[in-house]
Nucleic acid binder design. Structure first.
Length: 288
DNA sequence: ATCCAGGATCTCC
DNA sequence: GGAGATCATGGA
């Protein structure tokens, strides 16, 4: 990997396994706008960043080296060797050979944990376009203005809202869950998220599931996409269907059985496997 | 109009 | 501790 400043942009070269389209469109984050083919705007870390993916180089702008190194390298997980991860997964599994080849450029983002938590609470029993809309509403109502957009609000901005006020963001029955999560995050001077961060994964999962409206799937998404726990395997309807179909010839499995399967089969790489499988299942409409 | 969505909860046994 | 209805909202 190499990167250098050029005008108001940082240009990434000499990399592999990174496609901005696959990374953003694979369902792990919600605050991005497609401008054109291979061109996106994302809003994260209270910044608005344009990204132009030319295939052999990627332009990030407006951005300087300091910002790139302090925020975006980690956000896009650019230091990790995904080629090696895919080789390991493909070695033990022919299904993943197909799935990972299908989305060669996915990277697992390191998102801000409060935003990630609220986003995946909203995701339950919901569709991606609606999830994006509700998050956008929350940002426009309560987030700080940054250029033409709004940052995701700090928890302190939401903690004193009423359930009725939050429902105006179209969060529906999830409004009370957002409030409970926000209160716990604000409690003890931000100690909640710190506790999650410092706990082992199993404990962290239990802590997150103390929040009303956070079950195993939402907890695992938060652990994977914002706490760097790459061994979890968020199991939603798509993953359930694709595992049943591609590994168990259509046999019905419980969530617990799927978790068992993933940890035995993929171990510390289960999170990556999950992303490849999810993207594959959704693109090919497997099981529908 | 009826069904359903990156699930979780409550209620029933 | 597992099965089944219910939960807002809006697009198909």
């Amino acid at each position: 990997m190499n990167y250098a400043q050029k005008g108001n942009a940082v240009i990434l070269t000499d990399y592999n396994s990174f496609s901005i389209e696959e990374t953003l469109e694979c369902g792990q984050c919600f605050r991005f706008i497609k401008i054109a083919e291979r061109e996106y705007i994302i809003i994260a870390h209270s910044k608005v960043l344009s990204i132009l993916d030319k295939g052999n180089e990627v332009h990030f702008f407006p951005c300087d080296i300091d910002e790139f190194e302090s925020i975006w390298i980690n956000y896009f997980d650019l230091k990790r060797n995904y080629r090696e991860i895919k080789e390991i997964l493909c070695e033990r599994d022919e299904v993943l050979q197909k799935a990972s080849a299908y989305a060669n450029g996915i990277r697992i983002l390191n998102q801000q944990s409060y935003e990630c938590l609220i986003s995946f609470i909203i995701s339950q029993n919901n569709r991606i376009p609606m999830i994006k809309q509700v998050i956008k509403n929350i940002c426009e109502f309560y987030g700080e203005g940054i250029g033409d957009f709004n940052a995701f609000p700090e928890p302190e901005k939401l903690v004193n809202l009423s359930e009725a006020e939050l429902r105006e963001c179209k969060a529906g029955f999830r409004a009370k869950y957002i409030l409970d999560a926000t209160r716990k995050v604000c409690d003890r001077n931000g100690g909640f998220l710190k506790e999650v961060d410092e706990a082992d994964t199993e404990t962290a999962r239990k802590i997150l599931m103390n929040i009303k409206g956070v079950g195993p799937k939402v907890a695992d998404c938060v652990l994977l996409f914002s706490f760097g726990r790459h061994e979890v395997f968020p199991t939603d309807v798509w993953i359930k269907r694709v595992v049943e179909q591609l590994y168990f010839s259509g046999e019905q499995l419980s969530i617990k059985e799927i978790q068992q399967f993933s940890s035995e089969k993929f171990g510390e790489y289960a999170g990556y496997a999950q992303q490849y499988l999810f993207h594959y299942a959704r693109s090919e409409q497997i099981g529908k």
